[in-house]
Design a protein around this nucleic acid. Sequence first.
DNA 1: GTGCGTCACTTGAACGCTCAACCACGGCCT
DNA 2: AGGCCGTGGTTGAGCGTTCAAGTGACGCAC
Lengths: 159, 159
Amino acid sequence: MTEPRWLNADERRAWLALLSINTMLPAALDNQLHTAGKVSLFDYNVMAMLSEAEGRFLAMSELAARTSSSLSRLSHVVTKLEKRGWLERRPHPGDARVTTAHLADAGMATLVALAPGHVEAVRAKFLDALTERDVADLARIGEKIVARLDDDHWILRET
Amino acid sequence: MTEPRWLNADERRAWLALLSINTMLPAALDNQLHTAGKVSLFDYNVMAMLSEAEGRFLAMSELAARTSSSLSRLSHVVTKLEKRGWLERRPHPGDARVTTAHLADAGMATLVALAPGHVEAVRAKFLDALTERDVADLARIGEKIVARLDDDHWILRET
DNA sequence: GTGCGTCACTTGAACGCTCAACCACGGCCT
DNA sequence: AGGCCGTGGTTGAGCGTTCAAGTGACGCAC
């Protein structure tokens, strides 16, 4: 039973900052999206990921990977968005186990309507506080952390 | 109605990384704490903040500030932890509006028991992926973001 | 000292998320 | 062909969080 290595000053600062960002940033963006269109940040992201996919659809498991969420959480949310007419579930032709989520036209329309305000909020609450250099550093460091948490996370998947 | 400024490559990388960290890191730490002692990361943090305070107590509003949470959320959690005998609410002598939360001995004991494993997890899931330089950069950048979200956040309160 | 606005919190209901259980299918292996 | 395990997904119950409303207490104006 050896003494644990406690955090030094910089480690503590980094950890506390990340912890605070972690609760405050999603809250701020959720807020903007919710007042603009009764949509959560997660809802938005689900639709955004679909909008960027070829054919505007993805398998549930792939969509879960791209939103860093559990299949269960995604399934509940897809059900909700489906009820609003923004998404549609379809069986996969080749493999009957697979369900694909398709972004409907109505979903694309709300996404397009919400996007400018959302990007503005991302800038206002986050990116505008940083220099170009900071953003590059953060991207590099952030990807290292992501790699540690999930070594084949999709955002690391480019050449 | 001008065209919004969409994100460039680094901005997008930084944003997506932060978004992923945001869901995966708390989940990983929650997991460790929950299997080690049926405690959430937020529960742990509440008790940790109290343990570091003079006299092991803080006003609810101050504790809310130090956990970046709403008073409402904190109130519910304090009720829960109080039922487990880890915390105690007391009226503030000078101002009857204020409630203070005190860390009980039992709470301190569980904190002490949980701390080594938690710190190890923070290192394993996060800090160990980074160089010393990265940690310093992240602390600096993180604090800039915190400042943007709340310009007198408590972690910025030292000289 | 009476009103009035603010502050510090609490509460209950609605909503969202997590967890464990479950089902159906596909890909084996024999 | 039959049995088996792993994969992909759904569901419902329980718990946690948010939101809006409500309760006192303080402080200031008059």
